[in-house]
Amino acid sequence: MTIPPSLIDALAAVLDAPPHDVRPVHGGDISRAARFTADSRPYLVKWHDRPPTPPPGWPDLFTAEAQGLARLTEAGAIRVPAPRAFAAAQDDCPAYIVLEWIETGHGDRREAGVKLGHGLAALHRVTAQAYGLDHGNYCGATPQANGWMDSWIAFYAERIDPAIYFGDREAELAMCHLFDGFPADFFRAYDEAWPPAAGRDDRRPLYQLYHLLNHLNLFGEGYGGQVDAILRRYVG
């Protein structure tokens, strides 16, 4: 993978050093990504040739991502990569965001799961006076409205699940269960730090429904069976 020349120029300008040692980074479906080095520091850059058009008054895709990371950093519960630069698409340069590169850990998986579980519980204890956020953002490339609401049920019914927002902690835990990416120690540690409310397991499929519908829309009928099973569970 090569970074577009126009983006190379933009990165050199914002970092005061030319990018080199570029390596592709895989795993995402929305943007292209690469690790690179500039002035002896490693970075991650993500870029998008045709980012979604922001609704009126909304930040663009990568501005919203930077704002979300800033919110998570302010909470002080879990380390997240710090944004170094971001910009909307201009002329022949794609939209991009440059992030601090955090190396993958090679320590004990159980210890990491426990630390993350405790950290997520601490993050969920950071609350607001209402549900939502002060700006819209995105789930992948899908624009998602926030807008403060006093009722969690109304918010979830109308706003669904933006990328970062103040809401019910069970919604995030349900997503963690959905694709089996988290170890059992993570969930045990979370419940140790903040025990579950009664009925959580019964509500989990309802919180997973939106993400399955989103995947059905993006990737096709492979997710249809899971969607149908949840609908039958709640509406017959």
Rank of each mutant, 00 (worst) to 15 (best):
L178Q: 14
F186C: 04
E158Q: 14
I153V: 13
I164Y: 12
E170N: 14
H177E: 15
I160T: 10
D185Y: 01
Y190V: 01
L173D: 03
A184S: 14
M175V: 13
A171Q: 11
I153Q: 12
G167H: 03
R169L: 10
E192L: 12
I160Q: 09
Y190L: 03
G167Y: 01
F187M: 07
L178S: 13
H177V: 06
A193F: 10
F182I: 07
L173E: 04
P183Q: 09
L173C: 06
C176W: 04
G181E: 13
A184I: 11
F187R: 09
M175R: 10
A174P: 07
Y156Q: 04
Y165Q: 07
D185M: 02
D180A: 15
P183Y: 05
E158H: 10
D161M: 06
W152V: 07
G181F: 06
W152D: 03
I160V: 13
Y156F: 12
A157Y: 00
A171T: 05
L178H: 08
E158K: 06
W194I: 07
A184Q: 15
Y165H: 15
D185W: 03
C176Y: 09
P195T: 12
I153L: 11
I160W: 05
I153S: 13
M175D: 04
A157P: 00
I153F: 08
W194G: 03
A154H: 11
A189F: 11
R159K: 15
P195V: 09
D180H: 14
R169K: 08
I153Y: 03
A174S: 15
M175T: 11
P195I: 11
W152P: 02
I160E: 06
F187H: 15
A189D: 09
F186Y: 15
D161W: 05
A193N: 07
A157Q: 14
F186K: 04
F182L: 15
D185R: 01
F187L: 06
F166K: 02
W152C: 01
E158F: 03
A193V: 09
D168F: 02
I160F: 09
R159I: 04
G167K: 01
E192W: 09
F182A: 07
W194M: 14
P183T: 08
R188Y: 06
E172K: 01
F166A: 07
E170Y: 07
E158P: 00
P195S: 11
L178T: 03
E170Q: 14
P162T: 09
F182Q: 12
I160D: 05
I164K: 00
F182E: 06
D180T: 11
F155T: 03
I160K: 07
W194A: 15
A157R: 14
R169F: 08
L173K: 05
Y190Q: 02
H177S: 13
F186G: 02
A193Y: 10
D185L: 00
L178W: 06
A163I: 00
Y165S: 10
P183I: 05
E192P: 01
G167L: 01
A171N: 05
